[in-house]
């Protein structure tokens, strides 16, 4: 039963709106350590300096997309076991399959409610306190 406040999260999306919405949802769930990155490359740069427990990342981003980020994370030993939740659109079943091959922990379909966000995180970490 991990405490939400003990889990650090990196939110990766090129859209500020989506980052703000995810951050807002996370804050409602009691998360405190939340950082943001606008693309996969920036996310990677942040992660190697300061690892997070959880990455919530969009798929379609400039520079380095969500799958590229996932692969990079999984191949870099210091951060390879970071939990990774991929943000997807409804029709992206191909993407979810490919992400699963690369070891994504869960996915989250946009748009989402705070309850669904909680459910998706709890499926990865267990019930939050």
């Amino acid at each position: 039963m991990p405490a939400a406040s003990s889990i650090s999260v990196l939110v990766v999306d090129d859209q500020m709106t989506i980052r703000a919405l995810v951050r807002n949802g996370l804050q409602q769930l009691g998360f405190r350590e939340i950082s943001e990155a606008p693309d996969g490359e920036e996310a990677l740069r942040i992660l190697v300096q300061r690892p997070s427990n959880l990455i919530i990342s969009d798929y379609n981003m400039p520079k380095l997309d969500g799958l590229g980020l996932l692969r990079a994370v999984r191949s870099h030993p210091p951060i390879k076991s970071t939990a990774f939740i991929m943000l997807t659109g409804r029709a992206d079943s191909e993407l979810v399959k490919r992400a699963a091959q690369f070891g994504v922990n869960n996915y989250l379909v946009k748009p989402f409610t705070v309850a669904v966000l909680r459910q998706k995180i709890e499926q990865v970490f267990g019930a939050l306190t």
């Binding site: 650090s8 427990n53 076991s81 994504v104 922990n105 869960n106 996915y107 499926q123 990865v124 970490f125």
Partner: peptide
């Protein structure tokens, strides 16, 4: 969606950072 989430364990004490 037929997808099974993959659970992970958090590091016990030491915060990752």
């Amino acid at each position: 969606f037929g997808f099974t989430p993959m659970a992970v364990a958090l590091p016990d004490d030491a915060p990752v950072a």
